[in-house]
Design a protein around this nucleic acid. Structure first.
Lengths: 191, 191
DNA sequence: TTGAAGTGGAGGATCGCTCTCCGTTTATGT
DNA sequence: ACATAAACGGAGAGCGATCCTCCACTTCAA
């Protein structure tokens, strides 16, 4: 593969990650090509179907998230608080939440084998990380990992862009408040 | 106005509230008519433009939310905790969060006068309610009312319906955790 | 320098949503 | 009951947005 072609393919994956996260899984493909600074034909040549592109994004994001979880898991021993919040920050930055629909959706059996594989791997690592955070007293015992991921997904999904201009740094604060609510040293959850 | 016509108009408003909240402000109008159990022509007869319908939904929801805030404000004196959480529950049920984009959007100057009016009225009541909750020690002092509403909006916006089947009652738990995080007796927010 | 690899974007095909038109149905007053 | 104005439903033409191909042109790499 030619070096410039590889560069364009890479740009497409990154552009797709952002655009799909911002405008939904059915965002126009032209918008992705444009964001990547590439012609629409190049997109189609690299990813004949929308799913091919989505799978590439999933592969990439899951791999990176898995690595981040692995890294956090190791750092948990020395500074749990920091490791935990940094992992959450990374998950936000990777737009991990945007993948949830694609990964849980009923048709997930149709995911290619390698995506399924990295999905399970990442899931296992994140689950272990959450359990470790629970043992470290950072997360209440009665929550499940999927809950945490879903909450992050909902809180970070782009919504009304300009609101962030009105109230700066809204999303980080929401996340921080949610994380505070996760702590077992707060009051118990109402029933 | 004929009684059956009034009933259909009412059904349209309620259907629109749900469909617009679930599928976004640009949901197909056919879907709304169908949900209301009514022909598409009936929708157009009652609401010639999409905005007419959206405004009717906004009027309705804001009025009800305002009444709920008023009610909570009164109940705050005897049982603040209960009044506060019940108000939040009502806001969720009314899908108040779904209105945020429509109400904050730059073009909000174009809202009809009466919607603008009820919007300001409701805003004032909710703001007062949040301040009261802060005085009652239920909400940390360093958050603004808009933050709370935005968080509710994000946490409750329909996302991946079937996830609720996988992990039942996900949304109420997210809300509860977020509310727990709002309490000042938790740890302080990281910067 | 050469040709194989790769590119961009115009534009026809397609799809889903909008909105009207009009023959049929229904509520209401007598 | 009946008459009639009021209201209804849904087919389908119109339309705008997105998809996806085709091919003349550009770029990389040996």
């Amino acid at each position: 593969m030619r070096a410039d072609a590889a560069r364009r393919r890479e740009a497409l994956i990154l552009a797709a990650r952002d655009v799909l996260a911002e405008r939904g899984h059915d965002a126009p493909l032209d918008a992705i090509a444009e964001r990547a600074g590439v012609g629409i034909a190049t997109l189609y040549r690299n990813f004949p179907t929308r799913d091919d592109l989505a799978h590439a994004v999933a592969r990439r994001t899951l791999t990176e998230a898995g690595a981040a979880a692995e890294h956090a898991l190791a750092a948990m021993a020395s500074d749990p608080e920091r490791a935990w919040t940094e992992f959450v920050g990374t998950a936000v930055r990777l737009r991990l939440g945007a993948l949830i629909p694609a990964l849980i959706v009923e048709s997930y059996r149709e995911l290619p084998g390698d995506v399924l594989e990295v999905r399970e791997d990442t899931k296992a690592r994140v689950t272990e990380l959450v359990h470790t955070a629970q043992r470290a007293g950072l997360v209440r015992d009665d929550v499940q990992p999927i809950e945490v991921i879903m909450a992050i997904a909902r809180l970070t999904r782009p919504h009304v862009q300009f609101v962030d201009e009105v109230v700066p740094a809204l999303v980080p604060r929401m996340i921080a408040i949610y994380l505070a609510g996760l702590r077992p040293d707060g009051r118990p959850l109402p029933h």
